[in-house]
Design a protein around this nucleic acid. Structure first.
Lengths: 278, 278
DNA sequence: TCAAGACTGCAAGATAACTTGCAAGAAAAT
DNA sequence: ATTTTCTTGCAAGTTATCTTGCAGTCTTGA
C-alpha cells in the first residue's frame, strides 16, 4: 500500500505535532527519505522524539524502517527500477521484438541513475556555445555520430564529422581551435584514434565530451565531460544504441531549449532598449 | 564539479580495494547514495574502513560528506511520484532526459500492438535469403540505414546502401535483380525517390520492405511488406528513432537466429550423409 | 635477499542517530 | 475547580555508523 495513503488513513488520529511532521513529509518526501529524524523534526518544529514516536504509531518498528519505506516509494533506485522490470517481465513475452523492447525500456528506466539533468544541460550549453563541434564515432557509433551531425546542423551549428581513417582524422584535427568542442562515443573500449583525439584536443584547449556505456568513467586519457549510462543487452553480446541515442536526443532537446532561452533573453533586452528610446 | 568526474580524475591513483569500491559506486550510484559505508564496502568485497579512507582520499571530510555529494548528484530532489512511470511522468522531472526516457519506454511498450513476431521473422527470413539487400534511408533515416548496413554486413550479407542523390540512386538500382530485397525507411512522408524506388523494384520483381512510423499504412505506391509502429514524441515536433531502431535490432537478432537455424540444419544433413556412407 | 613502503582488515574508540523513561504543561473530563 | 489524560521536550541510554591506530601481509625498491 502506498505510504502516503497509509498516512492519510490515520490523519484523524494524529496529534498536532504528528500532523506537522506528516505535512512536512508530504511536502517533500525525498527530503524526508534522505534526512534524519532530527532533521525532519526540526523542519516540522517538533522534537525528534516525536518523529520517532510517529513512525511507531504508523506501524513501523523504528524510524529507520519508516524512512526506508519512504525511500522505496520516492527514490528511484535499481530496486525500484527492478520492480518496474519485473512488471514488464511478468507479461511473459518471449518474442524477439517484445524482449528487445522490454530490455530497452529497462535500460531507459535506469538512465537517470547515471546521468543527471545538470549534466545534460551543462553539455548542451557547451555544444551550443562552441564555435564548432567535431563529432567522432567509430564502428557502430558512427551511426550516432551521423545523427548528431544532422541534428546539430538543424540548429545551424558548424558541425564536422571526423573521419574514422587515422590520416583523415589527423588532417581534420588540424582545424581544431580553442573555442571548439569535440564529442566522441566510446563503448566497450576506447575507439581507434581515441587517445590521439583527446590529447590533441587538450593541447589545443578544446573541450572534450564522451558519451559512453558503463565503463566510460574508467577511460584514459580523461575527457573533460562524460555521459556514461549502461546500454541494454549482455555486456559481451548484442548491445543496442538505444540508450546512447536517447542521451543524444536529450542533449539536442536541451540545446534547443538553451537556444530558445537565449533568444528570449535577447528579445527581453531588445524590449528594454525600445522602452528607453520611446 | 561532477562527482563521477572527480572520481575519474583519480582513477589511476586508486588501490585495488578503492577501485572496487568506485566500480560499485559507478555501477549503482543511487544505492551507494542511500546506503552506509558498511553496505557499500560489503558489496565491493572490502572492509568499511577502506570505504571511509576512500572518501577522505577523494577530498571529502568524511564518508557522510562523500555520500551527501552522491545524493546531490544522483537523487532527484523534486518529488511527487512513486514507480518509474510516475517518477518520470509527473515529477517536475521536467528533466529532458527523464521525460525522453519515459516517452521512449512508453512507445516501446506498445510496439507489439503494431508489429507481430511473425512479421519480424518473415522479414528477417526474407533478408537473409536475399542475394543482396539494398537499403535506403533519406534524411534522419540515413542513420538507421547506416546501422542496418553495418549489422547485416556483420553476417556476411551482400548489402548496399543506396545513394540519396537521385542520379546515384538510379545508377545503383540498375544493379537490382529478382533475388534482391529493398529495405527503406519512411516516416512523416515518403522520402525523396520513394516512388521510383518501389516502382523499379516491382518491375524487376525484387521484394520491398518499409519500416515506418504511424502513417506507414498510407504509403503509395505499396511496398510488399510494412513494419509500422508509432514513434515517440509529438507528431509535429521532435521525433526520435528509438522505435524504428528497436524494430531494426529485432530484425537483426531474428536474422541471426535464422542463420543459426540454417547452420544447424546443414549440420544435421551432414550428419545424416556421414551415417549413410559409414 | 632484505628492508621499506603500501594496502587493508581488525577492533577499539568516537560520533551520530534513535529510543524510551520521566516529567512538565496543556487539554479534556468530571 | 479539580482530576485525569494526553502531548511532547529533555536527557540518559542504546544502537548504528564511522574513524583511526595497529599490525599482518604483500609489493616494490635497493
Amino acid at each position: 500500500m502506498s505510504l502516503i495513503k497509509k498516512i492519510s488513513e490515520q490523519v484523524t488520529a494524529l496529534t498536532p505535532g504528528e500532523r506537522r511532521l506528516v505535512e512536512n513529509v508530504i511536502e517533500s518526501p525525498t527530503s524526508a527519505a534522505l534526512g534524519t529524524a532530527g532533521e525532519l523534526a526540526k523542519a516540522a518544529g517538533v522534537h525528534e522524539a516525536t518523529a520517532s514516536r510517529l513512525a511507531k504509531k504508523l506501524g513501523f518498528d523504528s524510524y529507520a524502517a519508516f524512512r526506508d519505506a519512504l525511500r522505496d516509494e520516492f527514490i528511484a533506485t535499481q530496486e525500484t527500477a527492478t520492480r518496474f522490470e519485473k512488471t514488464i517481465a511478468e507479461t511473459g513475452t518471449d518474442t524477439v521484438l517484445g524482449k528487445l523492447a522490454m530490455e530497452e525500456a529497462q535500460a531507459l528506466s535506469h538512465i537517470e541513475e547515471f546521468i543527471s539533468p545538470a549534466q545534460i544541460n551543462e553539455i548542451a550549453d557547451l555544444m551550443m556555445q562552441a564555435k564548432r563541434v567535431f563529432i567522432y564515432g567509430y564502428g557502430n557509433a558512427e551511426v550516432l555520430a551521423l545523427m548528431m551531425v544532422k541534428r546539430l546542423r538543424r540548429f545551424g551549428k558548424d558541425v564536422q564529422q571526423l573521419d574514422t581513417d587515422p590520416r583523415g582524422l589527423a588532417e581534420q584535427m588540424l582545424g581544431l581551435e580553442t573555442d571548439d568542442v569535440v564529442l566522441s562515443f566510446a563503448f566497450r573500449r576506447p575507439p581507434r584514434g581515441y587517445a590521439a583525439l583527446i590529447d590533441t584536443a587538450r593541447e589545443i584547449g578544446a573541450k572534450t565530451i564522451i558519451i559512453s556505456g558503463k565503463s566510460g568513467a574508467l577511460l584514459a586519457p580523461r575527457p573533460d565531460h562524460i555521459l556514461a549510462a549502461p546500454r541494454s543487452g549482455d555486456q559481451d553480446a548484442f548491445q543496442t544504441l538505444t540508450v546512447p541515442m536517447t542521451v543524444c536526443n536529450a542533449l539536442i532537446i536541451a540545446a534547443g531549449l538553451t537556444a530558445k532561452e537565449a533568444s528570449l533573453r535577447k528579445l527581453d533586452r531588445l524590449g528594454k532598449l525600445i522602452e528607453r528610446f520611446d
